[in-house]
Structures are given as C-alpha cells and as structure tokens.
Amino acid sequence: MPETIEIQLKKGVLTLCVLALLNRGDSYAYEIASTLSDAIDMGEGTIYPLMRRMQADGQVETYLVESSSGPSRKYYRLTDAGRRALEAQTAEWRAFVRAVDAIVDAPAAPAATPAEEGAEQ
C-alpha cells in the first residue's frame, strides 16, 4: 500500500500546516481548508474537527468579523500556546526532514567499493 505512508505523513503535519498558516495571518476555515487541500490534498471537511480540537487544546481562538454580505464570519487566530506549539513542531519537522534527507541523499560510495573489487577480479 503506497498510500499508507503518505496518509501517515500528512496526518502528522496537518496541525503544523494550520499553525504555520495562521502565524502568517488570521484566517477563516474555508480559506484554510482550500489552501491546504490545494497544497497537500487533504479533505476539506476534516478542517472542522481539527480546528475544534486545536481550539480545545488552546492553540487557536476565534472571533467574529462582520461581513458586508451575509452573516458574520468566524476567524481563527493563534494564541501564545499556539505559537509555542508552532515553534516546537517546526523544530521537530526540520530535524526529521534533515535526518531523512541525510539517509535518502547519502552518496552510494560504500556500495561502489565491492563493485570495483568485483570488476578487478
């Protein structure tokens, strides 16, 4: 199942992505959902359980903005706890990417030595 690792990876970084988006500026759920669904292919509906969870964890808070057309819109902004979570998760993400890159991009030098020996024989 090639999709499995992809699902696990996306699941892991979804919170980080939302934190990073909100750090750039306050936003509303539709905007967050469409940005993330374009970028990492996530289901738009899942943003609502996630936002409620982040709100329960105290990482984001909401406020209403009056709209010229229709009902007022619910905006999300980062709390101090959210900013701390963003810092911590960003550091974890960077360290993880570095570690994986180091393995994936490692030069194939060790494998070349036995091959050369084989050629000499």
């Binding site: 509303y28 539709y30 469409s34 509906g45 899942t46 229709g70 819109r73």
Partner: peptide, 26 residues
C-alpha cells in the same frame, strides 16, 4: 461551520455537489 463552508464555496463559484464531495463523508 459547514453551512458557512457551503456559502463560501458557492461564492467561489463551486457547485453544491463539488463542495460536498470535497468535504468528505458527513
């Protein structure tokens, strides 16, 4: 929240069926 999502989607020119499909299984 989900009603507002449909409103925003409609304002962005998407059909109800498209929005519902993108939202996932209710």
């Amino acid at each position: 929240d989900y009603e507002a999502h449909f409103e925003d989607g409609a304002a962005a020119g998407r059909s109800e069926a498209e929005i519902a499909a993108a939202l996932g299984d209710p």
